[in-house]
Nucleic acid binder design. Structure first.
Lengths: 341, 341
DNA sequence: ATGAAAGCGCTAACAT
DNA sequence: ATGTTAGCGCTTTCAT
């Protein structure tokens, strides 16, 4: 194994030309005569030359790298979003630096700062905690940045963004329950996800009031715990126990993990789903297909969210102007919801 | 937003010193007098200086970056492994470049090649398809590389590796079924994962023969499909249908997704699990906890696999010598397995 | 304690 | 069509 890496100067020496010629030949410059070019490429191959992207980056001021911040790498939702990001990034010749923020503001800032030092060409942040007040901390966000499902109320013109229509999604879920004949419908939320939780709650309320259905405060249970170690599944479990005695026949849950927690507790409490209680989740993670009964959910197009954000970033890198996108979620009917008896 | 980034020369000019002094001050060199150092740091802060990691890397020949190749980012198993990797990488000041290989040899090679151009300090590859015959293609693997659960029979001294003990794991699964009184035990495998599938099959066979139990060829079903789009769940579904009529009372599945496919088909065929049939999976992905009945499985310590591989890489980077690790999986008993009636 | 100069490996003006 | 010369923004001898 060659200890010292080969440089274009090494090739130049061997080929009896200048390193500039090698540089040009390797990048198919029309300035170099075909035979010289081929000869140089041949030598490069023989010497196992591997171009130094670092040196190229220093010169071209482009790293062909983007930074992605996710709340957790093992999160089934964002894992799929990142899959979508990576696919289009790679096909555009960009590599992805991935960092987890654990929904922590400081970690998020640190990750972005690290990306800046590394001179990434662009940044993608999921579930961002950054708002306009924090501009100082982020230093100058000098590179194109797109927020995915941001959790703050930043001015739209401040950052670029791709979001899911939480309000609409919630309505889809609740209207589905209503169409099944349910009239006593509850909501289990996650306080920690401020913005999306708020919007889903509002969508829930709107759907009910539009249908002229009653709303009771004890039909809504929102966990107020810090996002320490209490997972969403546990939230679903606890909150369902609270709501179990309120006579509800349908429950819309903040997301699929919460819904699954609710489902599990129903099994323990001998509440049959969907006979006694219909449950609807949000997100559309793969998992929902495999629980019993399979989970009815409002599905987010995860791959598309990632792909869309990445394409937006690509446009930004080319200096194009872009418009923020609000993607549309769609209802996936499965076994956890059924007509009211 | 400052268009042009500030460099140490800009700071030097402002501070009336040389850029060398700035460089030293910023990195707390004892050569610089405390007051000058503080003054320079203050100016740097005021000017919103962000060190250029690219320039540093070119000089120091270290990128503080590692490359990670996974089969799929959205894979619940490897997502968790990567989570483990990223945690220890970050605490060591390293960033992670992540690329998906989709179990494709060419893509895997391309990813590694890309990492080489980018001069990553080290590489981690999961489910590697590379064997010693392919050394040429990989060029010179010039940087420390650790394979995680490699799928080929490379000489141990060729690459460093962290693996799970597939053979032992399979035995744990089958011995568990045996201890529950089962005597007709089948195996559903995935042909595409050559090495691990082979080892798990052998573990299965060994456990049976040690217990003096019968083995029949039609108790073993191994999917021979290419890994195109047919997911493991579908494999489980199809193979269970095949085995359903053979009078088995226990089935060990290559992994949890296969087991879940089997579980789902059991529901459709009105085969009660675990009353009529006990099912045991492999991997220990979170999902298994939430299906009905919850899945008994041989769990791999996913975070630890990632963390262990990363620590091994860290040692390699420090020039230490390392020993390959074979980690031990453990049985997690849940509802999908029960004593034979 | 500080500075001048060289160089990491490449690209790009500017010659020729 | 090819070579010379500068940098890109840092770290690191080597002087002073």
């Amino acid at each position: 194994m060659s200890k010292r890496k080969i440089s274009i100067e090494d090739i130049a020496r061997k080929a009896g030309v200048s390193h500039t010629t090698v540089s040009r030949a390797l990048r198919d410059s029309p300035l170099i005569s075909p035979q010289v070019r081929e000869e140089i490429k041949k030598i490069a191959r023989e010497m196992n030359y591997v171009p130094n992207a670092i040196a190229q980056s220093l010169q071209t001021q482009r790293t062909n790298t983007i930074g992605v911040v996710v709340t957790s790498i093992a999160d089934p939702f964002y894992a799929e979003v990142v899959e979508g990001i990576e696919q289009v990034a790679r096909s555009a010749g960009l590599s992805v630096l991935l960092t987890a923020s654990h929904r922590d503001f400081e970690e998020e800032i640190a990750a972005i700062d690290n990306f800046h030092r590394r001179r990434v060409d662009g940044i993608l942040v999921t579930d961002s905690r950054i708002s306009k007040h924090d501009r100082a901390q982020v230093g100058q966000i000098a590179v194109p940045t797109v927020l995915i499902n941001s959790q703050t109320e930043e001015q739209p013109e401040m950052f670029h963004s791709v979001t899911i229509d939480d309000f609409l999604g919630a309505r889809l879920a609740v209207e589905h329950l209503i169409s099944l004949g349910h009239t006593s419908i509850g909501y289990i939320g996650v306080g920690d996800r401020s913005k999306s939780n708020q919007l889903r709650l509002e969508g829930y309320q709107m759907a009910l009031s539009e249908a002229g259905l009653p709303q009771k405060t004890d039909w809504v249970a929102i966990s107020d715990e810090d996002y320490t170690r209490t997972s969403d599944v546990d939230t679903g479990r606890k909150m369902l126990s609270k709501l179990a005695t309120t006579g509800l026949t349908g429950i819309f849950c903040y997301n699929d993990m919460v819904a699954i927690g609710a489902l599990l507790t129903c099994q323990e409490l001998d509440i049959s789903v969907p006979q006694d209680l219909s449950i609807v989740g949000f997100d559309g993670i793969a998992l929902g297909r495999y629980v019993t009964p399979p989970l009815t959910t409002v599905s987010q197009p995860m791959l598309e969210i990632g792909g869309c954000a990445m394409r937006m970033l690509l446009d930004l890198l080319e200096g194009k102007s872009v418009e923020n996108r609000v993607l549309t979620p769609f209802l996936v009917k499965r076994g956890s919801s059924a007509a009211l008896k």
